[in-house]
């Protein structure tokens, strides 16, 4: 009983989440910490316009994490995919983000958030950094399965499930940040989330093969991602 009271007191003394302070020139680890534990620290930075120096570290996180996860994806097929898969993943996620960036800014403003294009870039990069961190969290699991699973379909479904979970948390994160910046209409952000997901899924189809083997580095056949999944399922 006494121990539990002491623990409660200790918890009370601990810095509350809202008091989490993120320096203007934060380190990568401080940013990772803020992304996972205290997203409101990022909102505070946004409001105080102290965020610009933290965009490059977010880009670094995205780059490194997606490359590492890409190597694990590539390990399923080996050969050229050790190099091709990480590069394609990084290129794909970056291009998808760039395509969806203008609509994120406009939709966020339409939702009622008071936001600038620079702040939008910060939010988007922090969201992608969170998804990248979560993918790294899943990386050991994916790595084990890469060497155990023989079916391309099953491996694809596993990676898709991990990506879906990481995107779910990232999209919740972006909604939360925008709500703190004044966004009232969640519906528009849901529409944007759907657009982003479809864009990324289609990007994986354009850049195929990412997981499987192929004689050519990039397929020239134009397919919608659902069509591609159907064909892959049919073959396996």
């Amino acid at each position: 009983m006494a121990e539990s009271t002491q623990y409660a007191e200790k918890l009370e003394k601990t810095e509350p989440e809202s008091q989490y302070h993120l320096p203007e020139h934060a380190t990568v680890m401080q940013l990772v910490d803020a992304l996972l534990k205290a997203p409101e620290a990022l909102t505070k930075q946004l409001r105080a316009s102290e965020f610009k120096h933290n965009i490059p570290p977010f880009l670094l996180i995205i780059g490194i994490c997606y490359l590492i996860y890409g190597i694990i994806v590539g390990s399923f097929s080996g050969d050229i995919q050790w190099v091709a898969a990480p590069l394609k993943m990084l290129f794909g996620i970056s291009l998808s983000a760039l395509l969806c960036y203008p609509s994120l800014y406009i939709f966020a403003c339409l939702s009622g958030a008071t936001i600038t294009p620079q702040q939008t870039a910060f939010i988007l990069s922090s969201m992608l950094a969170l998804s990248a961190i979560l993918l790294i969290g899943f990386a050991p699991v994916a790595f084990i399965f890469s060497f155990s699973i023989k079916s391309l379909t099953f491996m694809g479904a596993l990676h898709l499930a991990m990506w879906a979970i990481s995107m779910n948390f990232s999209l919740r994160f972006i909604k939360r940040i925008l709500q703190e910046l004044g966004a009232k209409e969640g519906g528009l952000m849901t529409v944007w989330s759907v657009i982003l997901i479809i864009t990324i899924l289609q990007m994986t189809t354009i850049l195929r093969p990412i997981l499987g083997k192929s004689d050519v580095p990039l397929s020239t056949e134009k397919l919608f991602f659902i069509e591609h999944w159907g064909k892959t399922l049919g073959r396996n």
Partner: peptide
Amino acid sequence: AVILASLTPLILFLLYNLP
């Protein structure tokens, strides 16, 4: 027009994917 312009990169992406 602003909403349409913000969605134009995605329309161009769709165009790239169409036969």
